[in-house]
Computed example of a mutant assay.
Amino acid sequence: MDYPYIRIQAQTSNEDQSLTVAVHVQSEFFPIDEAGLAQTVQQWLLDNVPQVTTTTAERREQAFPVTQLPSLP
């Protein structure tokens, strides 16, 4: 099973600390602009977290193995 998500990395003014935000988007009937959503979250981080200096975003796929159940007798 695949579970895509947007991963946003934020660098801070302290080089030993960084932020990671994972945004899981699941919509079957409504189109969602994932790139626009990522940009909005990035801008919010820059505007509201004084320590954040830069951000990057990428869409990732996360796969979980699925084990088939045995047949019922």
Rank of each mutant, 00 (worst) to 15 (best):
G36L: 10
Q42V: 03
Q9I: 13
P50W: 08
D33H: 06
G36H: 06
L46M: 05
D2L: 14
P70A: 00
N48A: 10
A35W: 09
V23M: 04
D33Y: 03
V49G: 07
S13T: 10
I32S: 05
R59P: 05
R59V: 07
P4R: 07
P31I: 09
Q9H: 11
L45E: 01
T67W: 06
P4T: 04
Q43M: 08
W44D: 13
P4F: 03
Y3L: 15
P50Q: 15
A22I: 09
Q39S: 13
N48F: 08
P73F: 03
Y3P: 11
F30M: 15
R59E: 05
S27I: 00
L72I: 04
E61C: 15
P4C: 07
L45K: 00
R60Y: 01
F30D: 15
T56V: 03
I32N: 04
D16P: 00
L19S: 01
P70F: 00
A35H: 11
Q9L: 14
P31G: 12
Q17M: 09
E15W: 05
V23C: 09
S13L: 02
Q26C: 08
V21C: 05
Q42F: 12
Q39C: 12
Q43E: 12
T12R: 01
T20N: 04
E28Q: 10
L19G: 03
S18E: 05
H24F: 12
Q9Y: 09
S27C: 02
D47H: 06
R7E: 13
R7G: 12
I32E: 07
A38D: 01
Q51A: 14
P50T: 11
L37V: 02
G36W: 10
F30V: 15
S71H: 06
V52S: 01
T20W: 04
V21F: 01
T54G: 02
S13W: 07
Q39P: 04
L37I: 04
H24C: 07
A22H: 11
L69T: 05
Q68Y: 09
Q17T: 12
S18H: 13
Y3V: 14
Q68F: 07
Q43G: 06
Q39G: 11
N14W: 01
V21S: 07
Y5R: 11
V49P: 05
R60H: 06
N14P: 00
T67H: 03
A63R: 13
H24M: 14
Q62M: 10
V49A: 06
L37R: 04
D16T: 06
T55N: 03
E28F: 07
P70V: 00
D47L: 09
Q17V: 12
S18F: 13
A57W: 01
T67E: 09
P65K: 02
R59M: 08
D16R: 13
T40K: 15
Q62P: 05
L69K: 08
L72R: 15
E61V: 12
Q68H: 12
T56Q: 08
R7V: 11
M1P: 14
R60I: 05
S27Q: 01
L69R: 10
T40F: 10
T20C: 03
Q68A: 15
T67C: 07
V23Y: 01
V41A: 07
E61Q: 14
E34H: 08
Q9E: 13
P65Q: 03
S27V: 04
S27R: 00
E61M: 13
G36I: 10
I6A: 03
Q11F: 14
V49M: 12
N14D: 11
